[in-house]
Each structure stands twice: as C-alpha cells, then as structure tokens.
C-alpha cells in the first residue's frame, strides 16, 4: 500500500519533470527571435543584442532551463513580452475562471453521465436505452464550439434567458453564475455523452455478475442495487475516463472561453500564441500539462480507494 503510493508519487514527479523538458525544448526550438518579436522588424542590431542579453537568451540552454524551472517552482514564470507584467500575475487573475469552468463542467458531466448511463443500463435493449444511446451519439458527433454557438443563439439571442458571453467578475455572484451556465453546458454535453456510454457498458457488465442476483434475492430494490452495488463496481473504468476527461475539459476551456469571451487561461493562451509571447505560452502549456498529470495521479490513487482488492495485491 505505502509502496504503491510511493511508486505512483515518484512516477508523478518523473512525468512532470519529463513534461517540463519537452515544453521547454519545444519553445526553444521554435523559429523566430523573441527579441525581434518584442522590438519589431525595424529595431537596430545593437538594441536587439542588448535585449537578448537582458532576457538571458545568450546563456547556454541548460542554464536557462534550470533558471526557468527553479523560478516556476516558486511561481515565477518570468515577464510577459506582450503584457509587460509578470506571467504569474496574468495566470493568477485568470486561473479561478478556468478552474471554476472546468470543475463545474466536470460536475455536470458526472451528474448527467452517471444517471443517464445507469438509466440506460437498467433499461437495456428497451426504448430508454436506445434513447440515451442516440442522444449520446449525437453529443459525441457535435463539436463543442458549434454547440456553443447554437446554445447562444437559442438561450441568449432568441429566448434572452442568459447572457451570450463575457464575464463581469464575482462581485455579483448571481450574474457570474448566469454567465457560466452556457459555457458549462457546452463543455459538459460532449464529455457526458462519452462518459454515459462508458457508464452504461461498465454497469451492464457488472449487472451480469452473480452478486447482483444475491442482492436481488435479498429483497433489495432495483434502484438500490443499481446505485449501491452496481455503480461502485462499475467505477474503475468510469474513473479512468473521468481522469482523461478532466484533462479534455481543461484544454476544452481554450475553445469555450474564446467563444464566450471569458477572461480565463484558455483565452490567455490563445492571445499569447498570437502575440508570440513565449514566456506566457511556455508557462501556460506547462500549467495545463501539470493539471492533466495531476488529474491522472489522483485517478491512480482513487483506484485503491474504490477497490480493496488492489490494496491486497500491491
């Protein structure tokens, strides 16, 4: 057990380290001169050289990596070229937005997917099952940005129930929540379509096992059997997919934040790429990667919580 957690933790740190090298290397072999992108094409050779020295671009690559990664540990990602403020400040202002969006999207995904998946499994080969399968197929086929536009057209433009985009800050919580509803739904519908199918097939597999018959013979209601006996046993594949989906939700915010004009990390990364703002892009890519790796690390630990047999095997 302790050995298992230790091994996973080492793996987690190792993965983060490898990711940081890949991110750093990719950013550094990109063509283009950061100094020139800051000063413009008309800058003199002397000014460029001075700026390069100033940015530390002349130091050997491994020194620059060590400086970047030690800075990153204490939250110092350097200064943004285009915004002229510390990258950490840019991230700090926007992290809350993206995390709330991703977490809300994940929660809605779980609620929709688990209830629809369990419902479909309980109505196996009946009309309810086919209905869920049809809707989820549709959900998977529709791209999130297109779905967002449809949602805006219906709920914001036509019905005028919700704002079409933008975010006025958390000072007015009700208004803030209202502006998050459509983006959350747009994020969650696609993911819950995938997860509902996984839940359904995993639950069907568990329902074939003998212990559900024992539960039924003990006079338990179908509802109780499904939620208390079938679902926990179906969780391992579900949690695996949820880990991957959380990653997809975090990166999915890039598209959604741009469609809904939300001031989050997704919009920031989009702007930084357009501005060739390398320190910001590098920090954001690293941050997104770290979120994904962390999500998978948590999933690994959850397996042991879910299934006591794994504890014995380790």
């Amino acid at each position: 057990m302790t050995y298992f957690i230790l091994r996973r933790t080492l793996g987690f740190i190792g993965t983060l380290f490898a990711v940081s090298i890949v991110v750093f290397a990719t950013m550094n072999i990109l063509p283009g001169d950061p100094a020139m992108s800051i000063l413009g094409l008309e800058a003199t050779e002397d000014a460029l050289a001075a700026l390069r020295e100033d940015l530390g671009l002349n130091a050997p690559v491994h020194i620059r990596y060590v400086e970047w990664i030690t800075g990153a540990f204490v939250g110092d990602f350097g200064t943004s070229h285009s915004f002229r403020v510390p990258v950490s400040e840019l991230i700090g202002e926007r992290l809350g937005m993206t995390i709330s969006l991703a977490v809300a999207g994940m929660l809605l995904t779980l609620v929709l997917a688990l209830s629809l998946g369990i419902f479909a499994a309980s109505k196996h080969r009946q009309i309810g099952d086919w209905g869920v399968m049809f809707l989820s197929q549709l959900g998977i086929a529709v791209p999130a940005f297109w779905l967002s536009i449809l949602l805006v057209l219906l709920f914001a433009v036509k019905l005028r129930w919700l704002p079409p985009g933008g975010f006025a800050g958390w000072d007015d919580p009700v208004a803030a929540m209202r502006s998050l509803i459509l983006p959350t739904v747009a994020l969650a519908l696609v993911q819950s379509s995938v997860l509902a199918r996984v839940t359904r097939s995993s639950a069907l597999e568990v329902m074939r096992q003998d212990f559900t018959r024992t539960a039924r013979a003990s006079g338990l209601s179908q509802r109780r059997i499904l939620w208390r006996h079938v679902l926990p046993n179906a969780l391992v594949p579900i949690v695996t997919i949820v880990g991957m989906q959380f990653a997809a939700l975090v990166t999915g915010t890039i598209v959604i934040e741009n469609v809904f004009y939300l001031p989050g990390l997704g919009r920031l990364i989009f702007q930084s790429i357009s501005n060739r703002d390398l320190p910001t892009v590098q920090a954001l890519v690293m941050l997104f990667a770290a979120i994904v790796v962390t999500a998978n690390f948590i999933v690994d630990l959850l397996y042991v919580v879910i299934d006591p047999r794994l504890k014995a095997r380790q």
Binding site: F211, T214, D307
Partner: peptide, 18 residues
Amino acid sequence: ARRVAMIFQEPMSALNPL
C-alpha cells in the same frame, strides 16, 4: 429474504467484492 431466501452455486462471485 423474509419468506424465501436462496444461496447460490458460486460463493466466489456471489458476494459484492467491494
């Protein structure tokens, strides 16, 4: 369970493993 109860063939799989 209250009037008629049953035990099954496979004790290995008839109990919820979790």
